[in-house]
Amino acid sequence: MTPSSESVRRVPTGPARRGPTGIEPARITAGQPGLESGLVTRDGDTAHIDARGVYYKTLNEQIRELVGAGVSTVALDNVNGQRYIGAGISADHLTILVNGVPGNDLAAFMDGPTVIVDDNAQDGIANTMNRGLVVVRGDAGDVVGYGMRGGRVYVRGDVGYRVGIHMKAYGEQHPVIVIGGRARDFFGEYMAGGEMILLGLGDSSEPLLGSYVGTGMHGGVIYVRGSVQGHQLGKEVSVVDPSPEDTARIEELVTDFCRVHGFDETEVLSQPFGKIAPFTHRPYGKLYAY
């Protein structure tokens, strides 16, 4: 029997780049949700995409197409939970404006662009990010900056659990996370490099920090505006007073954060900071028998 073209049932698969194996790339076919592209409007160098109801895969393809076409600013309107925005994009001089709440893994593996979220953000922001800037005007969820190696994340409000976990520095790359509000447990767990600043701004009955701060930490530094109790700390870290060099660095980073988020840096800097740092860079150096 010869099926007509209408009667042929196409099996839905994901899109793919042509691999080294010579297999033809698959394309999005029937059965995928949100197949329709978002409406694109251009305003000079800025392109707007109406993301309402657009599936993340389609939305991210549209973003990459616009970036490839040389657009310097991509504004995403009506974003509602689409994941992986900015993921894996390597580009300097690119700004992605997110109007709405983006989904998980925003800016994962990102290398260079600036992402500004005009709302809250969800989990996994800046996962393994290499370079770039992520600004969140509201709160952010868990695991901000996991394995982050470079770039900056400025969250205006509160963050969830395991923020800054296994952040690391390398050469010129030096990741920075600044949080305007409060953080939950396991802040800076396994941290191996970079800097985090927690400001605790605004009125809240919530504690500044949860427990297990800096558990397994063996590099980098955390500055907190306010006090931290010994029972909140992991066994690998302690709180000390910042040195003059630390204070200069706090001023530099807080000033930049306040500039981005519109806070008064004089007021923010008027309260004392504490420095949380690891006792050793080799916490497991004597664990083994050879």
Binding site: T2, V8, R10, V11, A16, T21, I23
Partner: peptide
Amino acid sequence: SIVVGYGNGDGGPPKLLTELDPQLM
């Protein structure tokens, strides 16, 4: 499942109409 069609529905030579995910060979 896979679907094999004949030409463009006009009875040409058979071909695989199902689009495959990328494979490592």
